[in-house]
């Protein structure tokens, strides 16, 4: 279980999978989700296994979620905003892949 060492001075509320959650203003989103006890941010595309943020530095992509309607956002690279809407990412990340992008050289 994650917890905050010190109480936050100011909180904002965000919506996580339809539930209202109070989080520290200016918090990193992945950090706030973990501290709020969220059980998963993403369901893996192949086996459907639950995932939570792993690296917190933008390299693993296990923190992907839909934020304010935009899918595939790395929550570890986002800051919370009052009223932000976060949905669990279910299934494949719908990114453009190298094949569809072609060689950008």
């Amino acid at each position: 279980m994650f917890r905050k060492l010190e109480p936050s001075t100011r909180e904002v509320s965000i919506l996580v999978s339809g539930q209202r959650v109070e989080v520290p203003a200016n918090a990193n989103l992945a950090c706030a989700l973990l501290a709020a006890g969220v059980q998963l941010t993403r369901v893996s595309p192949v086996s459907g296994a639950p995932r939570l943020p792993y690296c917190m530095m933008g390299v693993c992509f296990d923190c992907l979620a839909t934020i304010d309607g935009i899918p595939n956002r790395q929550t570890c690279l986002e800051s919370v905003r009052e009223g932000m809407i976060v949905e669990i990412q279910d299934g494949k990340a719908q990114y453009m892949h190298e094949a569809s992008l072609g060689d950008y050289e």
């Binding site: 279980m1 994650f2 917890r3 905050k4 060492l5 010190e6 936050s8 520290p24 918090a27 990193n28 950090c31 706030a32 973990l34 501290a35 939570l52 943020p53 792993y54 690296c55 917190m56 530095m57 570890c76």
Partner: peptide, 17 residues
Amino acid sequence: MTAGAAQILLKLDGVVA
């Protein structure tokens, strides 16, 4: 998580497990 991730949680918002 990675231990580096645990440290980032500590640096960002003082979050620990």
